[in-house]
Write a protein that binds this DNA or RNA. Structure first.
Lengths: 191, 191
DNA sequence: AATTTCATGTAACCAGTTACATGATTCA
DNA sequence: TGAATCATGTAACTGGTTACATGAAATT
């Protein structure tokens, strides 16, 4: 049995990309530095050691091509164990801490769910997202009621920003649920 | 002359809080763990070393009360140099990287600006925020035009989330500019 | 011929996490 | 008197940053 300990964002991102198709370290770094998917760390000092760690844990396997050359190219592919761990991570329940501090992780997980989980699991994720976001939003509203009077103009506006963020997240989750849930199963979103 | 090197989020948060009134390490940790201002790290292993570092840099000064007891209470207050550095940080131009990856820093800076900067500087911050957000939003829209066709449903929804976030940020900045700018200087926002 | 891009990595450093350790004070 | 909270800190570990180093292949 594989424990569902949380893995770092970088590890998760690497696992997600490699789960689709094999990548070299360089390809991963490119993906992180050029696509919006990752404003993750593309620094070599992060990626190379991370790949070593993940391989040592048995989640990916590196194959070296052109073994003769000085710097042979190394492609990493996911293992069966890696696939299980990745799915376990995607299925992890959404927590308050996630929606407050780890939105990037949540979106990464969500973006890669389609091929790896079934519809009910995706819906469960979104409903957890909705629930936790709503809970935090309630807390913020309550807090504003309690301390709102003695906030300066800027503080008040910053508070507004928080409220607007979580409201937007909540709306997004509801829209996503409506689009994914089979009751109103329209497949194509673009006209 | 004080260099405007970027300081860590935790350092910035500590400096902001202490700039208002002296805090002990414990009070700082409480503020970080209980208020929404900081979902920053309240762990002792972060806060105590950070205070040492900041004090060593001459930005804050600790005063020990109850010197007789075994664990004397230590209150930190900001120095003139610390105040200069803090203001320098608040005045730093808003970058693309900030709006994409460091929204928490930006909101922290904004929330503490009122007492420390003048209105024009606050407006300059907001206009930088607006400009960079708009720029990134344009980039995202363009990107969707280029690659949008072959996104899966979840990927597409995740992309939507990004777009909605930056749109919300942009609207927030515009609203904040309108409220702060003197041309339409209405002071009280709450009825 | 020179520059850019592909491609691999290391080393020193920095800051944050978890877990541990200690003890005083306040309140039920 | 026992629990919670106030209050200070350390140690081992983790993982990410910047800067450095090397060299092949492709492009201009």
């Amino acid at each position: 049995m594989i424990k569902d300990e949380r893995i770092s964002t970088l590890t998760l991102a690497i696992l997600c990309l490699i789960s689709r198709e094999p990548h070299s370290a360089y390809q991963l770094r490119k993906a992180f530095s050029t696509t919006p998917m990752g404003h993750f760390s593309s620094s070599p000092g992060a990626v190379y050691p991370a790949l070593r760690r993940i391989e040592a844990g048995g989640l990916i396997r590196g194959r070296t091509a052109n073994r003769k050359t000085l710097r042979p190219k190394r492609m990493y592919e996911i293992t069966a164990k890696g696939m299980k761990v990745l799915k376990g991570q995607l299925r992890l329940p959404v927590t308050r801490d996630d929606v407050v501090s780890h939105m990037d992780d949540l979106m990464l997980r969500f973006a890669f769910m389609e091929r790896l989980l079934d519809r009910n699991e995706i819906l469960a994720f979104l409903m957890g997202f909705e629930r936790e976001t709503e809970g935090y939003l309630d807390y913020l509203k309550e807090l504003r009621g309690a301390i709102g009077e003695h906030l300066s103009g800027c503080e008040d506006l910053a508070f507004d920003h928080g409220l607007a963020s979580y409201r937007m997240n909540l709306n997004w989750a509801r829209k996503a649920i409506a689009e994914i849930s089979p009751t109103k199963g329209r497949e194509s979103r673009r006209k």
